[in-house]
Design a protein around this nucleic acid. Structure first.
Length: 212
DNA sequence: AGCACA
């Protein structure tokens, strides 16, 4: 029995197509009908693959289950970009269809032990960078106050305080990663006198600050 | 958890 996975752009499209095609006789000789249901987890695809649909059929003559696992393993290895995926944690079950390959089983067990695997970023930690992102600032926080605290650390170059939207956040750029790391470690979980909440939260910024 | 500027 062959198995196929089809990706749709929207959930609605998938459901509509499913109800339209379910039960369709596709082999007039045997009277076999299509059986369609929503997959247990989404196919994972890279953003590069948008546009015309692609057919992926990597069966090598092995039995269906094994060949599908193999196809999924290759598919997963191809250009997967977790960050650009519009997926929130827990929206889908942790185990995908391909989770029975040795590699993903190994990854699953590492996840449970809280260890990063080779091709997985450490949760909550970002790539070191000269720019720091500072959050959990109170509404009364001023640029002057922040500057006072930040300039205790050598190498501070630029400080920006953003107040648009909700609570203010700040970006602080340092001379080099050594300096920004010193400041990050020193300032993490420390309090500003203006704060009406918890301590500052400092991380490496997602992207380095661009100087004019 | 919240990440802009060019």
């Amino acid at each position: 029995m062959a198995v196929a996975f089809v990706i749709f752009f929207t959930h609605q499209d998938a459901v509509a197509t499913m109800s339209a095609l379910n039960g369709t006789v596709f082999d007039p000789d045997t009277g076999d009908t299509l059986f369609i249901e929503l997959a247990r987890s989404n196919s994972r695809r890279s953003t590069r693959e948008f546009g015309p649909y692609r057919i992926i059929d990597k069966r090598t003559g092995a039995k269906d289950k094994e060949s599908l696992d193999e196809a999924y393993t290759q598919y997963d290895d191809h250009g997967l970009d977790e960050q650009t995926e519009n997926r929130s944690e827990g929206e889908y079950p942790d185990s995908t269809f391909g989770a029975s390959t040795d590699q993903s089983v190994e990854m699953e067990s590492r996840k449970r032990k809280g260890q990063p695997s080779s091709d997985e970023k450490v949760e909550g930690e970002r790539q070191p960078c000269t720019t720091l992102f500072i959050a959990n600032l109170g509404p009364a926080c001023s640029k002057e106050e922040l500057n006072e605290v930040l300039s205790k650390y050598p190498g501070l170059q630029t400080l920006k305080l953003l107040r648009k939207g909700g609570m203010p956040v700040a970006f602080a750029d340092f001379q080099d990663i050594e300096s920004s790391t010193e400041a990050l470690n020193g300032l993490q979980d420390t309090y500003l006198s203006s704060s009406d909440r918890g301590a500052m939260h400092v991380e490496y910024a997602r992207s380095k600050m661009r100087r004019a």
